[in-house]
Structures are given as structure tokens and as C-alpha cells.
Design a protein around this nucleic acid. Structure first.
Length: 497
DNA sequence: AGATAGTTTAC
DNA sequence: TAAACTATC
């Protein structure tokens, strides 16, 4: 499966020179890239070049890592282009990314022994399987007398840093985030490293060999929407600051408008540093105090990301198990037909279907609509949050185990500092409030295009004959809102006891 | 980060 | 009579 990088004549000569250097036992280090696919403010990358002249830049695609939470289809699509763009950037620095496929530990073992690297640099991750892998790598490195150096580059704080005054872990967001804000170090983000040209002689494979792109092409919508590069992330941040930030706290809830930064996938894959993001906005708020309320609102969303990682770190079962144990006796209905209708965007509730189709089409859904579709699944359809989490996992380009698990549990009511169970969103009311002209619905549910604004969120009320009206193809509501709401509340009463 | 039904208040 | 408020889920 692997092939050796075949250099052109010039790099072949360079390679010969390097092997001579190697004979002189010049030190080599490895940067093990993970979800930190950036060159700016990347501690592992920066410190590797600060300490070594020969740095091997490595990414291992381990298609089994994560078990039932191994990378989903949309994430793999994103990863393909993220690696593509990162490699392009590195080539401009006369370096290149070594790609490997297979078991992470096994691959690292092979590379460590074939390159005689003395040190491996990486940035820490927090999923249970990634924590386990880091521990195994530490043991491996000990046995090979290689130094393993872990950096903190993916969160503002390590999950264990913020503690309550009694030394316990937080389980409520607001006091957690207030404590974090006092602890967050506002030192400047690291610049890009001083790259040193090096084309190591290491067996690797082509990007296409990783089999990241779908065999059946469903990714046109993703391709038309996203550019998964570090450069684009920085551009999006700039555009967000210029155009959206001043109205963020209102417009963030409007799926029919551009009101959010759309940085979630870039943050997940580490194509933008959360510290860079945080410091940029803090500095802006200091420069322009009028924006401080909006900045605080945006940064609190970054705070939820920190909080989710904090929860996942201390409750590694968060992706599977209810955080609140009393939810264990909750009787989910888990009807397959209803689940399928939800997945396909055929529930008969326009805002729900628009969201689910947006998800399938571009691998992303507006945050407000995520809450609406999640409430609908768990409360109106009585389908477990785990089913929703699985579907999102496969379809989101920003699928992130901590955020996904914590957020689904938040909506279901089983999570830490969760929405009360009885907070049941009404998709009609929500649609009329946050998509008042139905533009979001018309974009993603074209059958409803010709409906008037006053019935776009309740198409069953459209009795006006219209020969251009395609809404006949649109399903009737799969459940009634009033009775399904009452049923959910009745079940909630039972689990309270 | 809600919805709803019932009640009070402001014209 | 509708907006505003409130208790409840």
C-alpha cells in the first residue's frame, strides 16, 4: 500500500546529502500532526523547529481510531482537503507532510525505528481513545529512549485546570467559564516556526491512498461551500469581525442570515488556533469597548467548547451514557420510520426539514436549527439523543466528540447544566420567530418555495390553489405537536421520581 | 438557549 | 382587547 517518495533529480541529490548528514548522526525530530492542522500558533510544530534542524512532519490516518466514533464521512471529506492545503503550505516552505495510513501506534513505532528520531512533538487531545493513545505512545517512547513531548494547543485551558473553590470539577457552565476567564493566559499566540528545508526519506503514501473521499459522490454541496484551509479560516475570522460581530447577539439566531463565524470545522481540525481566536477578540474588545458585549457573547460559545471538553475529560462515557443517571430509565420510543423521516428531512415541519437537508447538503447546520431539530427528535419523536448524535457524527464537517455529546445531552435534558426537559421547542413558533420570511426554508425545502410567508412554517394550512404549487410533494407532519409535546411531558414526570 | 394557559394591566 | 406578566411543565 505504501510507496516510497520518488524524488526528482534535484531532491535525489539533496536526499543523498541528507543521508550523509544522517551518518554524522544529526538529530531528527517528528511533529505528529493531529487535529492541529495549522502552522500558526502550533506549539508542537514551533518547538520542534526551535530545537531541531531536521523535522519530520507526519500525519497518520488511523481509520479505526475511535471505535464506534471513528471519523464520519463528512469529517473525512474535510480532512482530505485540510491535509491537501497543509501540505501545499509546507511545500512552499520546502518541507512536506509525510502521510501514513494504519494503526497510529504501529505506524509511529515503524517511523521511530526507521528514522532514528530522538524526539516526538505533539499537541494533546481529549477524547478517551486519544488520551489512551497518548499514554501508549509515552510507553513506546520510553522503551525506545525517545523523548515524547506533549503540548497544549487545542484548548484555552487543560480540562483539569479550572476547579471550584472546594477543589471539585464544575458541572455548571457559567461559574466554570467565569473561573476560566481568570485563568486563561493571554500571552501572544506563537508565530509560524522558522521552517528548515527537509525532505526526509520516509515511506509514505499519497493523499488519495487514504481513501478519505466518498466513493459515491455526495460531496458537491460540501465542495461548493467550504475551503478547508488555514488561510480561509483566518479570512473567515476577519470577515466575521468586520461584518457580523456588531450584531452577533441578535443575528446569531437567524439561520436565514449570515450571523455566525462558521469557524466550527476549522476549530475542530485545529486549522485556527483557539488561542489566536480568543486573543484577537479580546484585543478587539479592548480597542473598541462598544463591541465588548458582542465579543463576550461570542467568546462564551468558545467557552461552551471548553466546557464540553472539560466534561468529556472527566466523564469519558459522555458520548454514550446519560450524564444525569435518572435519565437511564427514560423510555425512548426509537421508531425506525420516524428516525428515517427526521434524517431525510421529511418530517413535515419546514424548519426541521430545512435543517436536516442543510446538514446533508453542506455538512453543517445553523446552531439555532440544531437545537430545534434535536428538540424535535428527542421530545416530539421520543428518539434517544444517542441516535441524533450518531447521525450528526457522520454528517457534520465539524463533528467533535466533546461538543456533539455534550450538546445532544444538553438538548435532551440529560446533560450537565442542561436545558430543562420541559423546554420543548415548537418548530412552527421557532420558524416564524427566527426565519420570519421563510427564506431559510425556501432555500433548503424548495417544494415550499411558492408558499406565502404566513403559511411557510405550517404548510398544511395552505389552502390557496396555485398551479405552480409543488407543496403537494411535501409530507404531512409525521407527529402532532400538541399531543407529542404532552406525551413527552408525561414521560418526563415519570423519570423525575 | 421555551411553550402554554391563565391572569393582570394598560390603553 | 392586546400586550405583559406569571406559574407550570
Amino acid at each position: 500500500m505504501f510507496h516510497y517518495f520518488i524524488p526528482n533529480i534535484i531532491t535525489a541529490l539533496v536526499d543523498v546529502n541528507f543521508s550523509i548528514y544522517y551518518a554524522m548522526s544529526e538529530k531528527v525530530a517528528i511533529v505528529w500532526f493531529r487535529n492541529d492542522l495549522r502552522i500558526l500558533d502550533n506549539p508542537a510544530l514551533f518547538h520542534a523547529y526551535n530545537n531541531y534542524d531536521k523535522v519530520i512532519l507526519l500525519y497518520i490516518y488511523d481509520d479505526q481510531l475511535g471505535g464506534s466514533w471513528k471519523m464520519g464521512g463528512a469529517s473525512k471529506w474535510w480532512l482530505y482537503y485540510a491535509l491537501f492545503h497543509l501540505n501545499k503550505t509546507l511545500e512552499h516552505k520546502s518541507c512536506r507532510l509525510i502521510l501514513r495510513k494504519g494503526d497510529s501506534l504501529e505506524q509511529l513505532k515503524q517511523i521511530l525505528s526507521s528514522t532514528k528520531a530522538q524526539e516526538i512533538f505533539f499537541n494533546g487531545m481529549y477524547e478517551p481513545y486519544n488520551i489512551k493513545l497518548e499514554q501508549e505512545i509515552e510507553i513506546l517512547c520510553d522503551s525506545l529512549e525517545v523523548t515524547a513531548t506533549r503540548f497544549q494547543g487545542n484548548l484555552l485551558l487543560e480540562p483539569w485546570e479550572a476547579k471550584t473553590t472546594t477543589g471539585k470539577n464544575f458541572s455548571v457552565f457559567t461559574p466554570y467559564w467565569n473561573a476560566c476567564k481568570k485563568l486563561i493566559n493571554t500571552k501572544d499566540p506563537l508565530p509560524e516556526p522558522k521552517f528548515k528545508p527537509y525532505y526526509p526519506e520516509v515511506a509514505d503514501c499519497n493523499l488519495d491512498d487514504l481513501n478519505l473521499l466518498p466513493a459515491i459522490n455526495w460531496a458537491d454541496g460540501l465542495k461548493a461551500t467550504w475551503e478547508p484551509s488555514e488561510k480561509k479560516a483566518l479570512e473567515l475570522l476577519g470577515e466575521f469581525i468586520d461584518n457580523q460581530l456588531s450584531g452577533y447577539s441578535e443575528l446569531r439566531s437567524r439561520p436565514d442570515m449570515v450571523g455566525t463565524s462558521s469557524l466550527s470545522p476549522y476549530l475542530h481540525f485545529g486549522q485556527i488556533s483557539v488561542r489566536y481566536l480568543y486573543n484577537s477578540l479580546r484585543f478587539l474588545s479592548y480597542q473598541k469597548p462598544a463591541l465588548s458585549t458582542q465579543v463576550e457573547k461570542y467568546l462564551s460559545e468558545i467557552g461552551w467548547r471548553e466546557f464540553s471538553h472539560h466534561l468529556l475529560f472527566f466523564y469519558p462515557n459522555l458520548p454514550e451514557q446519560n450524564f444525569r443517571e435518572n435519565f437511564d430509565k427514560f423510555q425512548w420510543d426509537n421508531d425506525t420510520e420516524l428516525l428515517r423521516a427526521w434524517q431525510r428531512g421529511m418530517t413535515g415541519y419546514p424548519i426541521v426539514d430545512a435543517g436536516m437537508r442543510q446538514l446533508r447538503s453542506i455538512g453543517w447546520m445553523h446552531n439555532r436549527v440544531r437545537m430545534i431539530v434535536a428538540s424535535f427528535l428527542t421530545k416530539n419523536l421520543l428518539i434517544s439523543w444517542q441516535e441524533g448524535a450518531k447521525w450528526f457524527w457522520d454528517n457534520l464537517v465539524d463533528a467533535d466528540l466533546a461538543n456533539n455529546s455534550a450538546s445532544w445531552q444538553w438538548v435532551a435534558g440529560s446533560g450537565a447544566d442542561a436545558a430543562p426537559y420541559f423546554r420543548i421547542f415548537n418548530p412552527v413558533t421557532q420558524g416564524e420567530k427566527f426565519d420570519p420570511k421563510g427564506e431559510y426554508v425556501r432555500r433548503w425545502v424548495p417544494e415550499l418555495k411558492s408558499l406565502q410567508n404566513n403559511v411557510i412554517h405550517q404548510p398544511w394550512k395552505n389552502f390557496l390553489p396555485n398551479k405552480f404549487n409543488n407543496s403537494i410533494n411535501y409530507p404531512q407532519p409525521i407527529v402532532k405537536l400538541d399531543t407529542s409535546r404532552a406525551r413527552a411531558l408525561a414521560i418526563y414526570k415519570q423519570i423525575k421520581r
